[in-house]
Design a protein around this nucleic acid. Structure first.
Length: 628
DNA sequence: GCAAGGTC
């Protein structure tokens, strides 16, 4: 009898895709008892080498199988002082709703010679792989464990992954295990401490859960930080000089090199010197070709930021829609940090698939007929997934309106990546007038190239400048002082917040939108619509509670050496660096857990000792609110 | 009643 190999993917959609490719399309599908999504697919496949022809059962989990929690006696909020949660025993158990899936793996493993793990090729995937392995080993202690390494579900790529399995990366799995333990202990300890302490302070907080999380709090911190900058903003008046020349029927505006100054008397004096000089002299005539670069290949963070801005969908909606487009096989995996295309990927074939489209099919054809350019490469590569791109064409009438928007964006972005930069000619004229320098700039767009398909970028020709000779002198038509006021920054928008989270390593591409939703749910922040119509944006404003928490924690650590406020992203960043050390083998999981716990425990002790600062902040913002 | 991370 042929040997049996059990294959387990991270999600049902991948199990099905891999089964389709390995079997050539003919396989048997079996439902499993207790879960409507997971299926077992059976077929034969020749793995080559020592394995040869095997009968395969391909199945999946649905994300993580297990969860970590405290031992039962520590789960009640009054069962122990919150600080004990830094040491309380924890246990990993299969989630209640995942029991049938775990059963399925144990049962299937009994008859299998080997287990091939087909989880996503990222850190979490490696940990999910270890969870799968544990179940398989529990069903069959002698089962051999291999891992298929693949980063997309293109047929040839999948088949090669099956023929060249590697081993599970224990380091990466351990890094995730450390992350899970730290998030649980730290999150639960601080959440219980602050909830129990603050609930009694003001009536508004009674019954409320005031959660702390290593990602939620820095996210809140960014919102409050911007809010305070807006609130504390004091407008200042400034003055500048503008010079105008009418020539060849055109009005040229020269801008001051110094832009503006905050002292009116000084500006007046400088203008007088200009006027005294009478003649301005052309000191630079610069004409040079310029270009506007086509965009980089699309990452998740970019999709969320651009999407919020141009498609008017919030980041959670965009991800949900993109997820659906991926599951239906229209676009590639939407969670990726990679902004460079692998050389092996056949971009032209993907472009050809867009020929049937009414809006951009013609553009796709022109690319293939000679305008194709190899995409630029960004600096990120998660080594797991390619940039987001369309994998097949879908007729717009098969999509709902949100799907249409997101799909169109992904396609246009992809075609733009494979296009030539936009080309233009820029002109810069510099003049010296008295002792001051001024300049005027002109732009002529010569070739739009990628701009024709990427309608989200704007690059327009400006008014053409008249001719100037280097060294020539002229008397300006007008020169005078203008006055202005500095304006306050705006409240944070969602795309800006995602950008900050990304830059500071807060959350993953898959969870950033959830953290934002969480701090809204906790009523730490609220949204407000700024402007109306097409130009409106959602802005994030902290509630009184949100401001109180950040101010309270900032006060807790002021004056203490080496302690960083929980509202800042630094602690989380450090945790991330330590996870990387586990991945590279320079630190063990235990070392990292202990070190990180020590760091957070220190902040915890300060917080307990100075809990009044937190309480005072809540009183200050929340009691006043009752009367105002 | 707590976290963040997978996925449905």
């Amino acid at each position: 009898m042929a040997r049996k190999i059990l294959c387990v993917a991270e999600k049902p959609a991948i199990a099905r895709a891999v089964a389709t490719h390995l079997s050539g399309g003919s396989f048997q599908t079996h439902a499993i008892r207790g879960n409507q999504y997971v299926k077992n697919y059976e077929f034969d496949f020749n793995f080559g080498g020592a394995w040869g022809n095997c009968s395969v059962t391909m199945t999946s989990v649905v994300g993580h199988l297990t969860g970590l929690d405290f031992d039962r006696q520590y789960r009640g909020w009054m069962s122990c002082p919150p600080g004990m949660l830094f040491e309380a025993p924890v246990q990993e158990t299969v989630d209640q709703d995942k029991l049938p899936i775990a059963d399925n793996i144990r049962n299937q493993a009994k008859y299998a010679k080997a287990l091939f793990i087909w989880t996503d090729c990222d850190r979490e995937g490696e940990h999910i792989g270890s969870e799968v392995r544990n179940q398989a080993k529990a069903g069959n202690a002698r089962i051999e464990v291999k891992r298929a390494k693949f980063s997309n579900t293109e047929s040839a790529h999948v088949r090669r992954a099956a023929l060249e399995p590697v081993n599970l990366d224990e380091y990466q799995a351990n890094a995730v295990a450390a992350r899970i333990e730290l998030d649980l202990r730290i999150g639960a300890a601080f959440t219980r401490l602050q909830t129990l302490q603050l609930q009694t302070v003001v009536a508004a907080l009674k019954e409320k859960v005031i959660s702390y999380g290593s990602c939620q709090f820095p996210t809140l911190g960014f919102v409050v930080d911007r809010y305070l900058r807006v609130k504390n903003f004091k407008p200042e008046t400034f003055w500048g000089i503008k010079v105008i020349l009418n020539r060849e029927g055109k009005k040229v505006n020269f801008l001051w090199r110094r832009v503006h100054l905050f002292d009116r008397a000084v500006v007046t004096m400088m203008l007088e010197r200009c006027l005294t000089a009478k003649q301005a002299k052309v000191t630079k005539v610069n004409q040079k070709p310029t270009s506007k670069w086509r965009p980089l290949p699309l990452t998740t963070v970019d999709l969320q930021m651009m999407g919020s801005r141009f498609l008017r969908l919030d980041s959670q909606t965009i991800m949900k829609v993109a997820e659906g487009l991926y599951t239906k096989g229209f676009i590639s995996y939407p969670r990726t940090e990679t902004d460079q295309f692998d050389k092996a990927i056949d971009l032209k074939k993907l472009i050809e698939k867009q020929y049937p489209d009414n809006a951009w099919g013609q553009y796709a054809r022109e690319l293939i007929d000679g305008k194709f350019r190899t995409p630029r490469s960004g600096r990120h590569n998660d080594k797991a997934h390619p940039p987001i791109h369309p994998v097949s064409w879908v007729s717009p009438n098969q999509l709902n309106s949100n799907e249409k928007k997101v799909y169109e964006f992904v396609v246009r972005r992809f075609l733009a990546c494979c296009s030539e930069d936009a080309k233009g000619k820029s002109t810069e004229i510099e003049i010296q007038y008295g002792e001051e320098f001024f300049h005027a700039n002109g732009l002529i767009v010569l070739e739009r190239n990628y701009l024709d398909v990427y309608v989200y970028d704007k690059w327009e020709s400006s008014q053409q400048l008249p001719n100037f000779e280097l060294g020539e002198s002229f008397e300006p038509t007008e020169a005078n002082i203008f006055e202005g006021k500095t304006t306050a920054p705006n409240y944070l928008t969602e795309p800006e917040l995602i950008g900050l989270m990304d830059a500071n390593g807060i959350g993953t591409d898959a969870t950033m939108a959830e953290h934002i939703a969480k701090i809204k749910e906790r009523e730490y922040v609220a949204t407000n619509q700024r402007g109306s119509g097409r130009t409106s944006v959602q802005e994030l404003i902290p509630t009184r509670l949100g401001v109180a928490l950040v101010e309270g924690y900032d006060n807790v650590v002021t004056g203490l050496p080496n302690s960083v406020s929980l509202s800042k992203p630094f602690l989380r960043k450090e945790m991330e660096l330590r996870m990387l050390e586990i991945c590279s083998g320079t630190k063990t999981r235990q070392e990292v857990v202990q070190q990180s716990l020590d760091m957070y425990r220190e902040v915890f002790i300060h917080t307990q000792r100075r809990i009044n600062m937190l309480k005072d902040a809540c009183r200050k913002y929340l009691v006043e609110s009752a009367t105002s």
